[in-house]
Write a protein that binds this DNA or RNA. Structure first.
Length: 222
DNA sequence: TACCAGGAGAAAA
DNA sequence: TTTTCTCATGGT
């Protein structure tokens, strides 16, 4: 079973926070909007998701009851900028129908984390990362979100091999950091921010940037 | 032009 | 069980 050394993870977190500052995630007005964003951002740049959400808001459709009852093709048209629009229309309706049937946010927020996670994962179109995005950023549960950036960065730093099962990596980070909603919130957001700012510019050296000896270090604010 | 982006599920091996 | 394929727009 994978173990991540807290003495290596904590300085990494501190370095990211010092470099990029608090990220104030998730960008969303309400928990429901956060959950919609979590579905729409699957393998998609956030700027495209924002356009799709803006379309929903402009039509006054950012509502579980409304989305659940829309014609699939109307919703798909609205989601077009976020890509995979037919699949996402299907997934978002499946999620909204479940959300409504489950009693909405108050009823779901009353569930224990493990039970809520299991219920989310049973919704078609909600996988581990999407479920954990929702748990952390919409329900404030101490769950760490593992994404492709986390695997890439951690494997380059030698914290993991990168091909561990999702649950193993999530559990290892949660054990190393302790159940801390705020820390999980920031760490995941910072990893994404770091990837956007650095890996895109110079994909080979996310690790040496963090060690402070990267040729591209000039792009860092400190 | 080619590649990537805050994945998930189905199909094939 | 593991790997591969499909879904698709928009920015770089």
């Amino acid at each position: 079973m994978l173990k991540i050394d807290r003495r290596r993870l904590s300085p990494l977190f501190a370095r990211l926070l010092r470099t990029w500052g608090p990220q104030h995630w998730w960008p969303g007005e309400t928990p429901f909007e956060v959950m919609v964003g979590a579905v729409l951002t699957q393998n998609t740049a956030w700027t495209n998701v924002e356009k799709a959400i803006a379309n929903l808001v402009a039509r006054d459709w950012l509502d579980a009851d409304r989305i659940a009852c829309l014609r699939r093709r109307d919703l798909a048209q609205c989601l077009k900028p976020s890509g995979y629009f037919n699949i996402k229309a299907q997934r978002l309706q499946a999620f909204c129908r479940w959300y409504r049937q489950a009693g909405g946010y108050p009823a779901l927020a009353a569930l224990p984390t493990a039970e809520l996670r299991e219920a989310l994962l049973a919704v078609r179109g909600v996988g581990p990362e999407t479920a954990d995005d929702m748990l952390l950023y919409a329900f404030d549960r101490p769950v760490f979100v593992v994404d492709a950036y986390t695997r890439r960065l951690f494997s380059r730093l030698g914290l993991c091999s990168g091909d561990e099962p999702y649950e193993q990596l999530r559990s290892a980070v949660e054990t190393a950091m302790g159940a801390d909603v705020h820390a999980f919130n920031e760490l995941h957001a910072l990893i994404v921010r770091h990837a956007k700012e650095v890996c895109r510019v110079r994909p080979c050296c996310a690790d040496c940037v963090l060690a402070g000896r990267c040729p591209a270090a000039h792009i860092l604010p400190d």
